[in-house]
Simulated assay, not measured.
Amino acid sequence: MRVLILGSGSMAEQHARSFMAEEGVLLAAAVEPNAERRAVFGAMFEIPKLFASLDEALAWGEFDACANVTPDAVHHPTTMALLAAGKHVFCEKPLATSYPLAIEMAEAAEKRGVINMVNFTYRNSPALQRAHALVEAGAIGEVRHFDAAYLQSWLVGKHWGDWRTESRWLWRLSEKHGSKGVLGDVGVHIVDFASFAMASDIVGVESRLRTFAKAPGDKIGDYTLDVNDSVVMTAELANGALGTISATRYATGHANDLVLNIYGTEGALEVRTTAREWSLRICAGADIDTQTWQEVPLEPVATTYQRFVAAVKSGENGVPSFRRAAEIQRILDLCFAQDEARRLAAAAPAATA
């Protein structure tokens, strides 16, 4: 299986390392417009063919699949070109910047019959996968209520550097620079995380987005700090459950934590995961009467990279698919639309008697 890496940033390095570790996978080529970065990336992973554009790589064509690790707004045009060429695509999240673009990508991939998957990295959590299996098996009865949160704190701490002075963080706070705030950045993860764990789709949502003042004039250099920093939504699932989903960059004491509590008619689950650690607890059976929680043993699970490789080799599409990612984007679009409608209503002149 010959893989093209499209992009050369830190996540592209993660993709390259992950695919290199898989038996029978060759990093055949990479695309990076910047000549210096292209040379460094190619040397780092000993990639034999390097291109300045995707068009050049497609004209060469000697690869089976592409890891698309471009900026969010570039996912759609580059992926559509790859699909038109009949290439399998493993795309970074979010699949696209809007639902119409995302569903177009999903339908194009399905029409071409190529493998299409999205890198929702927290699907790699054994706690999440085990929680999903327990819910599906009826271990906690029918799900009634839940609360889920993606907690980051880099706006109040310097564990990842000083956001006030580093472009890699400042762009995430500026719509002009391509950001859709915490909702667009990590909201996609927690929406997928929560609904996948409960084995049910979101059918309704009401949301609130908030942008906080972070600098004089809400601007640092060329960066206007205008995107959302916190989001809270009330969500209803197809199985009837009701709960909350939130994401923030102001969760002091939490570097990068996803937490989910699921409450059912016959038990409850507590899911905790970060990029490297995870845990799962259950309260069920006789333990319900004493509110006793038991740790659930966890086994390693296949990563999204491994599932993509297996899908390409088998010819059967893996999960999460483009269509799943498009559905998540539909939920995010609803949240943005509700926020815009609320702002327009607040700005409208008051009616007079």
Score class of each variant (00 low, 15 high):
residue 240 G to C: 10
residue 246 S to G: 14
residue 243 G to N: 07
residue 281 R to K: 12
residue 233 M to H: 09
residue 298 L to S: 01
residue 265 T to S: 15
residue 262 I to W: 02
residue 242 L to F: 04
residue 282 I to P: 03
residue 294 Q to Y: 00
residue 294 Q to R: 15
residue 275 A to M: 03
residue 232 V to W: 14
residue 242 L to K: 15
residue 264 G to M: 03
residue 254 H to E: 06
residue 287 D to K: 05
residue 257 D to G: 09
residue 262 I to Q: 10
residue 236 E to H: 08
residue 240 G to W: 07
residue 275 A to L: 08
residue 249 R to Y: 10
residue 246 S to I: 05
residue 286 A to D: 15
residue 274 T to L: 00
residue 272 R to W: 14
residue 259 V to R: 13
residue 257 D to R: 11
residue 285 G to N: 07
residue 242 L to Q: 11
residue 235 A to D: 03
residue 250 Y to V: 12
residue 292 T to F: 07
residue 263 Y to P: 00
residue 273 T to K: 01
residue 293 W to T: 07
residue 257 D to Y: 14
residue 250 Y to W: 12
residue 272 R to Q: 06
residue 252 T to G: 13
residue 230 S to Q: 11
residue 277 E to N: 10
residue 255 A to E: 15
residue 297 P to C: 07
residue 251 A to S: 10
residue 249 R to G: 08
residue 265 T to P: 08
residue 242 L to V: 13
residue 232 V to R: 15
residue 246 S to L: 11
residue 269 L to N: 09
residue 239 N to T: 02
residue 278 W to Q: 15
residue 250 Y to P: 02
residue 252 T to D: 11
residue 267 G to R: 05
residue 277 E to M: 00
residue 236 E to S: 11
residue 260 L to S: 05
residue 282 I to Q: 03
residue 281 R to N: 03
residue 240 G to K: 04
residue 263 Y to D: 14
residue 251 A to P: 06
residue 294 Q to G: 01
residue 259 V to P: 02
residue 291 Q to R: 10
residue 244 T to P: 07
residue 242 L to E: 11
residue 281 R to P: 00
residue 274 T to G: 04
residue 273 T to P: 03
residue 289 D to W: 11
residue 294 Q to P: 01
residue 256 N to E: 14
residue 233 M to L: 12
residue 255 A to Q: 14
residue 273 T to A: 13
residue 230 S to L: 09
residue 293 W to D: 07
residue 296 V to M: 01
residue 296 V to Q: 09
residue 263 Y to S: 10
residue 253 G to M: 02
residue 250 Y to I: 03
residue 251 A to T: 06
residue 298 L to Q: 02
residue 271 V to L: 08
residue 272 R to E: 14
residue 296 V to N: 00
residue 288 I to P: 03
residue 253 G to F: 00
residue 235 A to Q: 08
residue 247 A to Q: 07
residue 266 E to N: 09
residue 262 I to C: 03
residue 243 G to K: 06
residue 284 A to I: 00
residue 253 G to N: 02
